[in-house]
Design a protein around this nucleic acid. Structure first.
Ligand code: ZN
Ligand code: ZN
Ligand code: ZN
Ligand code: ZN
Lengths: 600, 600
DNA sequence: GAAAGAGGTCACAAGGTCAC
DNA sequence: GTGACCTTGTGACCTCTTTC
């Protein structure tokens, strides 16, 4: 049903504002729009400038019981006069109202109907000047949607009338309270129905950003009649052409894709100077809290700020430190996801597999030597929090950032508050971090470094160690990535969820590393080398670190020389060359993490 | 991508319009460049009729925020109504937008993309009549530029689609404020990218000179409008207010070499945005705040290119290309400039010196051999900072960022507009970058890589190469650093000027590198290895790069084995271990550079 | 007074035109 | 065909009016 967007009947629709979406109010719009458009035609995403970003999380349709002529809804407008002056959007209790004519975000109740500024203006002009529009070039039944509303004036006007716009349907003045109340109830009802009826859809909706889309799909209104067909043929001369390029996969296009999506939105709201990551997190939460216009549920007092606080307490310090280092990375560039909306989405169930994979493969690697081996299963099977979320959504959501194998799943429930997501992620990877710390402790000589330097190395090197240690999660033969939950996901799926260049680089790296065919001892030693070769800024006793590095490297060389026969020299060299690659991955990773934090 | 901004994501190019007289002489360094037109394009640059004479010089970025609450428009069209009015040119805040398809001056946002009248018309015709163009005579990958856009319709149309033109992406009506805001930010971002040293690599590869000088662009703007308006208040606590010069003294401010970002202040212009400032605490000391903005999907895919119409008229066809690629970088962040006005300070003019020094000395070095030893002569009179600079103070000036040996002097005249400072810096290091490019071209096999990959490697590796090549500028025995001007500065002096951890790390690195006692051949080969070992994200043909790396490494190993007797193995290993260190330095450097850009 | 919509305004873009 | 101009809308904002 959603698929054939064609049928749209934007009826009273409601879009829910999910606070979760982007911390920054504005930013979000981007993603959503793309996704939305796409489902329709493959066509490129039409920009949705007008939609205030914070809008939308999901859209719900409401079908207002009364037909237009009626008045009344309780509503609030995003004050434009207000400081921030978001554009004026009409919402009710956090739900965004959509234009009944075209599905764009409504700016109010105009001429008896919730309509967008465009349709309002169009209608005004139409009636003021009594314009006779040129005849429709098609069958006089064009579907009117935001992206194509200007293509056929006759049909647009017709639609305006059809949905009830009329000069005498105007309602002036403030909305009576009763009216408002009633409306609210109605909406809530509608929402509930939807949710219960179609949970799947619901989750998909949550994944979407664009309001209009979904709703159209679901709109059950019988009313409009016209609809459907439209999109297709007529409009789309475009579809044929423009559309296609959209989902290009060639490198070039990929680039652009990223870009597109990444439009920057500014986020700096405040001045904070040097605050630690912790603070950052806190801020985000606040931001969210602020935004959560709707969800009642998440209001709980401020949750614990830092992700790390979640599970384990022991050794937190160090871990915390390492987090900091990750977080500190350079600039975060917003990275993006392209939404290939249309593409088929696969439910991941298909890829669902046993988790043994994860547990075993990797295990061996660090094991042999000093390794840590987490207590098998339990540790890694952290939560299932997400389990409930089946959302097969193809729709890329903002949080795609967390498409990380250290997470339990690449899918994110958009309805979840950001901090919760982070916490889960944190819980998921924390055991691994601890593993690294334990591993480090077992590296002969590591404990002899000053505590400060141990911490510094861990901070700088944890990611790199994890990368090596979990390289086997990236299976380039099957083109899948195994997450900590044990599930495997296809690369393409992950990409469609927002994974970008970092994923590619990691795969690249893993493949090459695997190609060196190290045995477990070598791998352990190499991992140790990786750790002590981590970025040294901040190290106090450089010589000691260097000495340790030297020692380990010699050991590694001997080991390699011993095991790899003729290729030994080459293999050793190649191993060393993995170090700068790891450093690069580390940087990319840091940026993305940071990016997530900035824009959860 | 990780490293510097330069990565690829289509962004927009920006050019600054310095209307009127080609006043800024300096900026025109491009002029000279133009003369050295590319060997590529044989034909002289065609005049640019359509472009208002003041056309572009280089592209760069942009600027300062205009005030918003006001009516000020971010985007203005050159009045067409006015008599002379050349065609309508869309500019934002003084920056000309360039056509995303061909690079000509854009006349507006057409079909979802900033495009020129030509491309707009072409696209319209194409979709209206659903024209099937004749097949491309070449490889269907013609580069579309203003001068040749009519040569291959198929490719032109393809490019149109590729950049996102589509009927579905049409945007009518006035540009939403937030949209404008966003564009501005993007431009800023683009500018920042440009600023990054990698910039003009592409053209250099072609033998061109870099078009521009970075930032003049922002100049006027900043001055004109109150610009950074917002910086103010909330955001940046202290430093921001231009009027009140401050001299931050906190230890924090003293951080990095290039940057001293500490007092970063974000200038979020308006509250409405969903901006959030993230403050990151990096490596203990350096704290900088930056705002990252990312919108998931914005409408127009990437920011549109803009051209600065400076006075100089060099044309940028090809350069445009490179710009595009640079700008493509991740769009995610939006930076703002805050004008810091610092107080006291001295014009560095005093320190200005001939550049011959740089030009010659260094020159030889990479040519045959790598090392450079600036020292020696009289040229290098170690001059102490104190000389003309009255405030050797510990008072770190905000711009301490540019305390970089690639500059001519660590002192910065605070009264100088930020862009001018950058320009000078740019002029200072550009030759060195060119040197790197030339060096790269001479690496056997490098030219066999695809152009894209050559550029990618250069983008990622230029800093690292420079670091190796100029390592000798760091004299750890005497504890001095020789700047490109030939002058030497004491480490402590530099620290007092704001250099921080990066400087330490660089010294560290240089010392260790020197300890390996490589001869010039080894150094050259090592430098080549460094380049081909640069971060590979974005590389298209990984295998080729790897093969080249392999070849060079073997060569290096042989050479080392031959020269270093017993220590050879160790030396070689140590050399390889320098690679990750370089990567780290590169990251730190990028961050600081970025930081400078963010908070000049 | 505050909220909320009708109408007005005018920055901007789609399309059409017609010398090249 | 091209693309500089022109004409005709469009729609983001704003002001003015009505209603609570
Ligand atoms: Zn509408
Ligand atoms: Zn129609
Ligand atoms: Zn063009
Ligand atoms: Zn062609």
């Amino acid at each position: 049903m959603p698929e054939d967007a064609g049928t749209a009947k934007p009826g009273g629709v409601i879009a829910y504002i999910s606070s979760g979406s982007a911390s920054s109010p504005e930013s979000c719009m981007s993603t959503s729009s793309s996704s939305s458009s796409s489902y329709l035609s493959t066509s490129p995403t039409p920009p949705r400038p007008s939609l205030p970003s914070r809008a939308v999380g999901m859209v719900v349709d409401i079908c207002p019981p009364f037909k237009n002529g009626q008045r009344g809804h309780g509503v609030e407008k995003a004050g434009r006069s207000s400081t921030s002056a978001k554009s004026s959007i009409t919402k009710i209790n956090g739900m965004v109202l959509l234009c009944k004519v075209c599905g764009d975000v409504a700016s109010g109740f105009h001429y008896g109907v919730h309509a967008c500024e465009g349709c309002k203006g169009f209608f005004r002009r139409s009636i003021q000047q009594n314009i006779q529009y040129k005849k429709c070039l098609k069958m006089e039944n064009c579907t009117i949607m935001r992206i194509n509303r200007n293509r056929c004036q006759q049909c647009r006007f017709k639609k305006c009338l059809a949905v009830g716009m009329s000069r005498d349907a105007v309602r002036f003045g403030r909305i009576p309270k009763r009216e408002k109340q009633r409306m609210l109830l109605e909406m809530q009802n509608a929402m509930n129905n939807m949710m219960s009826n179609n949970s799947q859809l619901h989750s998909m909706l949550h994944g979407h950003q664009s309001p209009s889309l979904p709703m159209e799909a679901m709109t059950s209104d019988s009313s409009s009649s016209s609809s459907s067909s439209s999109c297709s043929a007529s409009d789309s001369p475009s579809s044929s052409s423009p559309s296609s390029p959209q989902c290009p996969q060639d490198s070039e296009s990929v680039v652009s894709m990223d870009t597109n999506s990444s439009s920057a939105s500014s986020c700096g709201s405040d001045s904070g100077e040097d605050e630690s990551v912790v603070t950052v997190n806190r801020r985000h939460q606040n931001a969210f809290a602020y935004k959560q216009e709707r969800s009642l549920r998440q209001d709980q007092a401020s949750p614990s700020p830092v992700a790390l606080e979640t599970g384990c307490e022991s050794r937190m310090e160090e871990q915390q430190e390492s987090w900091n280092s990750w977080n500190n990375s350079a600039a975060g560039r917003g990275f993006q996801h392209c939404s290939y909306s249309n593409s088929q989405h696969v439910t991941n169930s298909v890829y669902r597999e046993e988790s043994e994979v994860y547990q075993q493969q990797p295990q061996q690697q660090l094991n042999s030597t000093p390794s840590c081996e987490p207590s098998e299963d339990s540790q890694f099977n952290t939560q299932t929090a997400s389990s409930g979320y089946n959302g097969p959504t193809h729709c890329v959501n903002n949080r795609a950032h967390l498409v990380c194998p250290m997470n339990t799943s690449p899918y994110v429930d958009p309805t979840k508050p950001s901090q919760e997501i982070w916490e889960e992620f944190s819980m998921s990877f924390t055991p691994a971090v601890r593993e690294v710390v334990d591993f480090a402790k077992r590296i002969p000589g590591f404990r002899d470094l000053s505590e400060h330097d141990q911490v510094s190395l861990l901070k700088a090197g944890t990611f790199e160690v994890l990368m090596v240690r979990f390289a086997s999660l990236f299976n380039m033969v099957e083109r899948t990535v195994t997450f900590l939950s044990g599930k495997r996901y296809n690369l393409n799926t992950l990409r469609s969820l927002g994974a970008g260049e970092l994923l590619n680089s990691m795969c690249e790296f893993s493949e090459k590393l695997a190609g060196l065919r190290l045995d477990s001892d070598e791998m352990s030693l190499f991992t140790a080398v990786v750790l002590v070769s981590a970025d040294r800024s901040g190290i106090q006793d450089l010589n000691s670190v260097e000495a340790l590095q030297d020692k380990l490297i010699r050991g590694l060389r001997n080991l390699v020389m011993q095991n790899h026969g003729e290729e030994s020299a080459t293999t050793f060299t190649k191993l060393l060359l993995k170090l700068p690659e790891l450093r690069s991955l580390n940087n990319m990773h840091s940026e993305e993490l940071l990016s997530f934090k900035v824009h959860p």
